[in-house]
């Protein structure tokens, strides 16, 4: 019994140390962002600021235009989420419930296309967007993100089990398919839409490579792109860079913490389906 207690205590200590080490970079990031300029470049490193200052945040928003980048990130993440939810849920519904020729083949081709890495399509999509004249505009990020196989797949799996009779009954009452989709299917699919929306929002917010390619004009940069750019001129200003990292991470963290139930559900769906 005593040995069991000792083992349990040891486990708690080990897990607690591991957890502290995991979050240490975040703690240091926040602490350094509140430190007066230059103070985090000393030896031995200071773990807590001698005095708290918000000067770096002030500098970021007032002099370095970070408010604009923040807005770009927010506009893109919200609009990609909304538009792709609409497009993918409509297609997911059709694949789950409508009968049409070649359905299984089309769906199989869609799923198979997931194996092709985004890096293959990156160059032609860039050329296409250039021809369309939407580089350096929000559309340059929104258009290619509109439809996703993962999204269609997730919604389809969720809706397959909805009984046909429910839709038939609404049709007999004279409802068109779009009305049925809007008033019956969307509310039914709400949990999976929350999961998918959360994934899309966070994925778009965190994305780096695509906005880096499409948004070459500075005022169109997203936060991650702007952060990488700032590093070029301000690599010496550790505290300023940490403040920039906080501004980039905190919104996505808040969204995650608020809706983590849906996120965690979604992340295990793929694995358990196996």
């Amino acid at each position: 019994m005593k040995q069991l207690k000792l083992k349990s205590l040891l486990l708690h200590v080990v897990v607690a140390i591991a957890a502290c080490m995991t979050i240490a970079p975040f703690v240091w990031m926040v602490s350094a962002s509140l430190t007066p300029a230059g103070e985090s470049s000393v030896f031995p490193p200071r773990l807590l600021p001698s005095e708290t200052t918000f000067e770096h945040y002030h500098h970021l928003f007032v002099r370095l235009n970070v408010g604009r980048y923040f807005l770009n990130s927010l506009i893109l993440a919200v609009s990609v989420t909304m538009i792709s939810l609409l497009v993918n849920s409509m297609a997911g519904f059709a694949f789950a419930k409508f009968a049409f020729r070649g359905k299984r083949h089309i769906f199989a081709v869609l799923v198979a296309s997931m194996i092709v890495p985004g890096q293959v399509t990156m160059l032609p999509v860039f050329l296409l967007l250039n021809k369309m004249g939407v580089l350096n505009s929000y559309l340059g990020v929104i258009l290619p993100a509109m439809a996703s196989v993962f999204g269609i797949f997730l919604v389809r799996q969720y809706l397959v089990s909805v009984p046909d009779s429910m839709i038939e009954a609404a049709r007999i009452d004279g409802a068109g398919d779009f009305l049925i989709y809007r008033t019956i299917i969307l509310p039914l699919a709400l949990p999976v839409l929350l999961t998918l929306g959360l994934f899309t929002f966070m994925g778009t917010w965190n994305d780096f490579l695509w906005p880096l390619i499409v948004m070459t004009r500075e005022e169109m940069h997203t936060l991650p792109v702007a952060l990488a750019g700032l590093l070029g001129e301000h690599a010496q200003d550790a505290e300023l860079m940490m403040a920039g990292s906080v501004v980039t991470i905190v919104p996505v963290l808040i969204v995650f913490l608020a809706l983590q139930k849906y996120y965690l559900q979604g992340i295990t769906v793929g694995a358990l389906k196996e």
């Binding site: 970079p25 917010w205 936060l223 991650p224 990488a228 990292s245 980039t248 991470i249």
Partner: peptide
């Protein structure tokens, strides 16, 4: 760490 922005943590 999984949900945070890769670029930001790389900077950190």
């Amino acid at each position: 760490p999984v949900v945070t922005t890769l670029i930001a943590v790389a900077v950190v």
